[in-house]
Design a protein around this nucleic acid. Structure first.
Length: 247
DNA sequence: AAGCATAACAACCGCCGATCA
DNA sequence: GTGATCGGCGGTTGTTATGCT
């Protein structure tokens, strides 16, 4: 159907934002709130595309944004979530307070991806590790080549359904009930299916699913799960045997 | 010291779903 | 029901910083 471009590119600034542009945008959003990105540049007097304004605000100007110094805890969580969710950066970012999807995506593409692929502490050649990178602990095992992740391409999936995972630690689950998720109706239609049992490597299967181990759930809505405070869960590292299906 | 290679990060592009007229 | 608009997302590209030869 051919949609119009989000804005005319004529006469618009591109590239890095100046501090003055940042100030204008920040002041405008503080005054008028977010939204109406398309009209914002004109209203605020910015020579920028609305999308560009939105990105700048969400990734850098929005209060509470953390920059850099991704901790090992965060890093581990990113790896786990990526294992589970694939490249759904916004979902992953949603579980990392103060982090943006763009930052996590960049961090993954430039560092974690290699680290995960190498399986042992990442890129050994090239430059010396930064102070931040020096804190990265080598991973005991490779989680590369695990294809259990849910891969999507710009297809939004707001609901993920876990079906009948025979978690052996089910009895401990009731304790976690305060962040337990709502049961989904049986007739609900799963949107994505991941057959973890199809994986060849048991270790990989473990890594794929250990995020979920503390849940005594027959069927849960995973998006609700992620909306819960599982961030607080202290330990994901249980050993289990399982032929799990995440749906 | 200079030039090249690579990493890191900011920003852009195009597609998609939701919403509304 | 249809098409336009908007916001959001993930992939990709461009630029800068840093390290290596």
């Amino acid at each position: 159907m051919g949609r119009s471009p989000c804005c005319s590119k004529k006469g618009l600034n591109r590239g890095a934002w100046t501090s003055q542009e940042d100030k204008i945008l920040r002041d405008y959003v503080h005054l008028h709130g977010q939204g109406k990105w398309r009209n914002l540049p004109q209203s605020a007097g910015l020579k920028r595309c609305g999308k560009s304004c939105r990105l700048r605000w969400l990734n850098y100007l929005k209060p509470g944004i953390k920059r850099g110094n991704i901790s090992t805890d965060e890093e581990e969580l990113i790896i786990r979530l990526h294992k589970l969710l694939g490249n759904r950066w916004s979902l992953i970012a949603g579980r990392l307070p103060g982090r943006t999807d763009n930052e996590i995506k960049n961090y993954w593409n430039t560092y974690l991806c290699k680290k995960v692929q190498d399986g042992v502490g990442g890129d050994s050649k090239t430059k010396a590790p930064s102070s931040q990178e020096k804190s990265h602990q080598p991973k005991p095992q490779s989680i590369l080549e695990n294809n259990n992740v849910i891969r999507t391409k710009a297809s939004k999936c707001s609901k993920l359904l876990l079906i009948d995972p025979p978690f052996p630690c089910a009895s401990s689950m009731q304790k976690q009930s305060d962040f337990m998720v709502e049961l989904i109706k049986p007739e609900a239609e799963p949107l994505l299916v991941v057959d973890i049992a199809a994986a060849n490597d048991d270790d990989e299967k473990e890594l794929s699913t250990d995020l979920l181990l503390d849940f005594d759930i027959g069927e849960i809505c995973l998006s609700d799960f992620f909306n819960s405070d599982f961030w607080e869960v202290p330990d994901f590292n249980h050993n289990i045997n399982h032929d799990d299906q995440i749906i």
